[in-house]
Design a protein around this nucleic acid. Structure first.
Lengths: 126, 126
DNA sequence: GAAACCTTGACACGACCGTGGTAAGGTTCC
DNA sequence: GGAACCTTACCACGGTCGTGTCAAGGTTTC
């Protein structure tokens, strides 16, 4: 067969089974089910799971954010409203480096990341 | 003068002064400052504050989500990555009328392109 | 020069997020 | 028929979000 169970999928994608279920509940990746209700992850899902991890770690964004992006592409009205709001934003051509607010936004995570990077990824639970 | 202090702005926009500072910190609306450092909200800011409230309550989205949308429009690389992830998603044709979807896709791409073209090459990722 | 604003910084708190664990029960495999 | 997996449903925990409040100090106005 061409599909992995949740544990196998977790191993090859570097998620935990717990998180795979969480991701499904967030509506991001919903594998098909076997007759008995077992989740079955195909190659496409596995690839998307890896890419998802890449997205979240590389750009430091949460699943909620990706969920919002998904909502944005599905709900044209919402997308339009958000768009309209940004349209009304004043342009600052070359006034101030706009990375100030970004730094703040990522600052909250930086400590965590630094900490996680410093700590060896041993089995934290016993 | 043509600008309100934080308390006045709060009253006419139905936010609290606290939240106005929070919104500023989130990078969403940054009023100019007086000589002494007082926040000064002009008509544009007031309007955007009201629209922001409309957005958050009507669509039930948080400031973090709007911040993410802002990040999406500023960081073309991130936008592309998120886009790519969605491209690999399986479509469900019966959920979305194809014409609608296509129009949305085209629209999004054109906006993205316009943004990338307009944005100076400041994409020096970390 | 005092009242009434403004500033930043901190503590607090309920709600949710990301994540792990565990329990009670069904399925698959040998 | 038991081991090893799967399911859902909870509890727990630290972190972030949205929000209020308070303190210590500067500014504006009369």
């Amino acid at each position: 067969m061409d599909a992995l169970t949740i544990q196998e999928a977790a191993q090859t994608t570097d998620w935990s089974p717990r998180m795979l279920r969480y991701i499904e509940r967030a509506g991001l990746i919903e594998p098909r089910r076997s007759q008995a209700g077992y989740r079955l992850y195909g190659p496409g899902e596995l690839q998307r799971l890896r890419t998802l991890r890449e997205l979240t770690t590389r750009y430091d964004i949460g699943l909620g954010e990706i969920g919002f992006a998904m909502r944005l592409r599905r709900d044209a009205e919402l997308a339009g409203a958000v768009d309209a709001w940004f349209e009304a934003q004043p342009r600052r051509p070359e006034e101030v480096p706009p990375a100030e607010w970004l730094r703040w936004e990522q600052d909250k995570h930086s400590k965590l990341l630094a900490l996680a990077a410093a700590a060896p990824p041993a089995t934290s639970h016993a």
